[in-house]
């Protein structure tokens, strides 16, 4: 009962946040001074043509009405028409989003894997524990784009192990995710190629989040291990594995989950930079082509989609947290 209520409240606030996001985008559009008319019909059009275009685009309507039209468009999946490509923004995003999603998903998996690995390695009793501890605290100061460039220099230029740009494997399959599509096509060579292309940008994107997740996981593990109830579990005569599985891991997850979600959210921002470095044909490329020409519908569409993903991810994390810790839905 209370769990359902909690989920309901979270979903309601998700909708509220999306509403707020749409308002911010609309206001930005208002003050940006981008002129959709000259963008669509060209700067040299006759005054009559301009007036007709304004009429057609509804630009002379009062602001609240235009905002409602904007929200109505968002609800029906109509994000407007790109000034640059002259195609519906929703279609453009549909074409570029899978590449970005793939990169973010692979990077997130890597981040979680590396985070857990780093946290555990820094806590085990072995000679390298100190090194990992140091990495956890110092490592995250390295900027993402620099890691990308460094990766290109080392693994492409010096070693020649990995490609420096673009996507590989099957890029026009049903899911749009090259690694998955290559596997679905049953083509090992293509799968390898897809992986080789994705691994470096994904790593560059994953390092910062991995360290953040590792740091949080490490501190909550340390705290849980010292807690009274773990002492109780040990005193009950449970084996070390039972104690870790039943009493330590779940209790340490909460903070890491929300940090993971936060980082996943940040990745939707960071991915734009990494795509630039590796000329990865995703939303980043689309955005960097749209920005210089003030293609506002395109920019707003990308922002709305990425922002929505960010909010959705955080909501999912809140709900997961309440599953991990039954006290959350109370307070």
């Amino acid at each position: 009962m209370s769990r359902l209520r909690f989920v309901g409240v979270r979903l309601a606030s998700l909708l509220g946040l999306l509403g707020a996001l749409s308002l911010v985008l609309f206001l930005l559009q208002e003050v940006s001074g981008a002129d959709p008319v000259s963008a669509t019909i060209g700067g040299n059009a006759s005054p009559d043509a301009v007036a007709a275009a304004r009429e057609r685009l509804g630009l002379d309507d009062p602001a609240p009405q235009r905002y409602l039209a904007f929200v109505g468009g968002l609800l029906t999946g109509d994000l407007g028409t790109s000034f640059r490509t002259r195609r519906p923004v929703a279609e453009d995003i549909g074409a570029y989003l899978p590449a970005t999603l793939e990169l973010v998903l692979v990077a997130f998996l890597l981040a979680v894997l590396l985070g857990v690995l780093f946290a555990v390695s820094s806590m085990l009793r072995w000679p390298l524990a100190g090194v990992f501890r140091g990495l956890l605290f110092v490592g995250s100061t390295a900027p993402t784009f620099m890691l990308g460039i460094l990766g290109i220099i080392v693994f492409y230029k010096l070693l020649g192990w990995l490609p420096a740009s673009g996507r590989g494997g099957v890029t026009d399959g049903p899911t749009g995710l090259s690694v998955l599509d290559s596997m679905l096509a049953g083509d090992p060579a293509a799968t390898g190629d897809a992986l080789a292309h994705v691994v470096m940008p994904a790593l560059a994107l994953a390092v910062g989040p991995a360290l953040a997740i590792g740091r949080v996981l490490r501190s909550s593990l340390t705290e849980t291990l010292r807690s009274d109830h773990v002492r109780t579990a040990t005193a009950k005569g449970l084996t070390e594995t039972q104690v870790l599985r039943g009493h330590v891991l779940r209790n340490s997850l909460g903070a890491s989950l929300s940090m993971g979600a936060l980082q996943l959210g940040f990745m939707f921002g960071g991915v734009l930079l990494v795509e630039g470095v590796f000329t990865w044909g995703g939303l980043g490329s689309y955005l960097s082509a749209s920005l210089p020409v003030s293609d506002f519908p395109a920019v707003a569409g990308v922002t709305f989609v990425l922002g929505g993903l960010y909010v959705a991810v955080n909501t999912a994390a809140d709900v997961l947290q309440s599953v991990a810790d039954p006290r959350i839905s109370v307070s």
């Binding site: 807690s227 009274d228 109830h229 002492r231 109780t232 579990a233 040990t234 005193a235 009950k236 005569g237 449970l238 084996t239 039943g246 009493h247 779940r250 209790n251 991990a324 810790d325 039954p326 006290r327």
Partner: peptide, 24 residues
């Protein structure tokens, strides 16, 4: 030692709030 804790020893701590696992 573990076996003994399981079947031959018992323990009661001071603060039952912190000594029980809050998530189980």
């Amino acid at each position: 030692l573990r076996e003994a804790r399981r079947s031959r020893l018992g323990v009661v701590f001071q603060d039952p709030m912190t000594s029980l696992n809050p998530t189980m």
